[in-house]
Computed example of a mutant assay.
Amino acid sequence: MVGRVRRLLGRLVSVAAVAVLTVGLASPARAAAERAAPKPPPAGVDITGVGLTEPLRLRAGNQPAQVVAVIDQVSWFGRTGAAKGPKAADLGPKYTIVVLAGDKPRQTFDLYPLAKGGPRAYRPAKQPDSRKTTAGWFLGRLNMSETLRSVGVPLERQIDTVSGGVGGGERVIPEDSLNPAKDIDDALAELQRLLLLNVGVMLVITSGLAGIALLIRRRTR
């Protein structure tokens, strides 16, 4: 009887160890795979503004580079911007871009590529998808004018801004893509779930071992 109980105990420990290792390795691997999975680019961008008699419609299906270039002008903005922007007389021509997901408008921004002191961008508090955000002004990338011109906006070539660069503001990686803060939060949440799961498994194993040990003790008396 004691031999059978000991063999049972050994099998239980082996199975439990395999279960813990499987849980510990599968969860991070699955989370890493989900984070590494490529996300589809925005479906498109609509641009309206000075000199455009009708909206300039860019779609990722046939103009992916142009769509990405325009999105790059606004995707790095922080959650909060300046409460006040330049004077209206210093802003120059305005171009409104609307980012679409599928056929639905998702975000909108007003771009001022020729503003005095450098390109500016304004994010309205009211967004097409009703997401909660705060209105704010941001310094734009130095190549904003050239980027818009390259996709079809009627702007004169700006020789001194061809090299591009960042105008300023709080820089973050796009919110729907590789946001570091979001990635860290997700990693911590995943780690917490993993630790809790492992603790639960260990408690079950400990309880089982304690019960078997008690049974062995009673049988050997």
Rank of each mutant, 00 (worst) to 15 (best):
V172G: 09
A210E: 13
A88L: 06
V2R: 14
G208T: 14
D72H: 06
R171H: 14
A60E: 14
E146A: 12
V99S: 01
T133Y: 01
R141C: 11
V68H: 04
L25T: 06
L56V: 01
G85W: 09
V151L: 07
R79M: 08
R141P: 09
G167N: 14
R218T: 05
A125K: 13
R59N: 13
V68F: 05
R157G: 10
R6V: 07
K39H: 13
Y122R: 11
L178Q: 08
Q73E: 14
G51L: 00
M144V: 11
L194P: 12
A135K: 00
L100Y: 12
G140A: 03
S14C: 11
L139V: 09
L114F: 12
D183W: 03
I173H: 14
V201Q: 12
G81C: 00
L197A: 10
R4C: 15
A19W: 02
G92E: 05
W76S: 15
I184Q: 14
E146Y: 00
G140V: 04
Q107S: 12
G102R: 15
I184L: 10
Y122G: 08
G168P: 06
G165M: 03
T48D: 03
L8Q: 03
V68D: 09
R157W: 11
G3K: 05
R193N: 12
L195Y: 04
L191H: 05
R79I: 10
A125E: 03
K182Y: 09
V18L: 13
F138T: 09
V20D: 15
E156L: 09
K94H: 15
P174A: 10
K126T: 02
V199R: 15
D186R: 06
R219N: 04
Q63G: 04
T161I: 10
V166S: 09
T147I: 05
A16R: 00
I173C: 15
V68Q: 15
A82V: 08
Y112D: 07
E175I: 13
A135Y: 02
K182C: 02
A16I: 01
L100Q: 12
L194E: 07
I216D: 01
Y112K: 06
G117I: 03
Y112F: 13
F138I: 01
P42L: 06
R30F: 08
D185R: 15
A83M: 07
V15T: 07
V2W: 03
A135I: 01
R131S: 07
K126H: 11
